[in-house]
Structure formats: C-alpha cells, structure tokens
Amino acid sequence: MSLFGSVTSLLQILFVLLMAPLLNGIMLKVKSRAERRVGPPILQTFYDLRKLFKKETLRSNNSTFIFTLAPLILISSTVVVIVVSPIITTGELFNGSGDLFAIVFILLIGSMSIALLGLDAATAFGGMGSSRAATITSLSEPALLVSVIALSVQAKSTNLSVIVLGNVHHVSWLLSPSHILAISALLIVIFAEAGRLPVDNPATHLELTMIYEAMILESSGENLALVKLSEFMRFTFLLCIASNLFFPFGIDSTKSWIFIGISCILLAIKLIFIVGLIALFETTQAKLRLFRVPELLAGAFVLAILATISGIVV
C-alpha cells in the first residue's frame, strides 16, 4: 500500500464522484438542445442532490433495515469497483483485485440491493420495478460475463489493468474483430444496466413504464440522493471502463504525478464526448417495449459469443 496507490485511489473516487453528476447534467443539456429547448443548467444534478441531502427522509412503516442499508450498499459497492479498477491509472491500490469477473459480481451486489429496496416497502410499483429490473439483470448478466471472457482472451488475463495495459501496448488488439464485437456487446449491456434509452427512459413520469425509477419511488431525502448519486456513478464508471477498453490512450501507466493529471483531463474529455454522443443517440430513440428488451440483450449475448470465438480463432 504505497502513498501513490492510496492517493490515486482517492483521486479515482473523487473523479467519478464529481464527473457523475456533471455528465448527467451535460447529457440533459445536450438532449434539451437537441429538442430545441434551453434545458436545465449543466450543474442541475448537483443542485438536485444538494437539495435531497437537505430534505427530510421518510420511511415506510412496512420497511425494514434494508431500506436504509440498500442505498449504502449500492454506493459502497460502486466505490469499491472504482477503487479496484484502472480509471485514471493502471497502478491502483489493490492491483490484483481489479478482476473483471469480480467487478461484474460486485456490481451485482448493487443491483440486488436496489431490487430488494424496491420490494421492501410492500408497494405495487416497487415490486413491479424490481421484477423488471431483475429480469433485465438476469439477461444482461450473461452477456456481460461472456463479453468479459471475450475482452480477456487477447490479454490472456481477466485482470482489467492487464487488459488495459495490453491494449495500450498492442494497438492491433483494439481493431481486432473480437475486440470490436466485445465492446459493442458491452455497450448494449451498459445501456441496459444503467437504465438508459432504449431499455428504460430515465425521464419518464409514468409509473407503468418505469423500470429503475419504480424501485426508488418509496425513497426520499438522503436515501434517494444516495441511490441517484450511485446510479450516476455506476453509469460513469461503466463508461470509464468502456472508454479505457476501447480507447485507452492517455491512461497513466508510468505512475508519475504529471501523467495522472493529464490522464484525468483526457478521460474527462473522452467521457464528455461519449456522453454527448449517447445523448444525441437517445433523442432519436424511443423506449423499447419490455418484451423487446430481451431481444436486444440476446443480441448482445450473441455478439459476445462471436467475439470470444473470433478471439479464439484469430
């Protein structure tokens, strides 16, 4: 546990913590602009979170300790994956623990806890949201696991740092069909996991069409703030991983302070670019019917399988 490792881990947490609401604000702004409206300020998500932390927290009389614990588990599992993954540097604190398989299952803790949160207060909409989210998780999880294998085949390692470093050093890996297929599968899964269009509409006000929002209908105040914050953080984290896998250049691999700074700035630029693209993409999309989502995820699964096969064969 070096000083460098500890400081960079903290930096990674801070980076994602600050970028997450900002990116959401940017997405809202880009979407609004695309719809020819002015849209909320870029810092709107910060204002919303600040307000929620200041508000009273309501708790249902049917709820259990899960109600308070689930948001905390969600956010701390997110923080743990941020600590173990290479986001701005490949030389992080728990170097060996940044295993893709482990990351998938630590993220699953968050999904499970939030699904339990939905069922905790004995409401109809909460159960509905949990049921739908669990359905989507059960189908996106396999695609994610197989694309983990596909992404790891070339580097012969499931350790994320090793894969990212391998991609930095072997540019040809990035353009191999296996890598491109795996990244596209990963992107679909990210859209599903983060509840973005076309899987779920984060701006919906109609309970019957909600998936992820429906689970947190019962949360308020700081619980809601924690859940919202950690969902933004999960999305940002997944985007960081995708961008580091797809275009890793700029990530610090030398363990020097200057490079860390450069890597932060470059990653921020990359993320803003990706988020802008996603926002533009989302304005052209309508939400899929729930029973069309499995087709999308099955597509991702097939892409991941194809990626693995081409990784083995080539």
Binding site: S32, R37, V38, G39, P40, D48, H205, L206, M210
Partner: peptide
C-alpha cells in the same frame, strides 16, 4: 420550458 429553471414534475 420550465425545466430550464430547475423545475421538474415527478411521479
């Protein structure tokens, strides 16, 4: 566009 002042409706 009331949304530009940070106003939103919720379910």
């Amino acid at each position: 566009d009331a949304g530009r002042f940070g106003v939103a409706l919720t379910a």
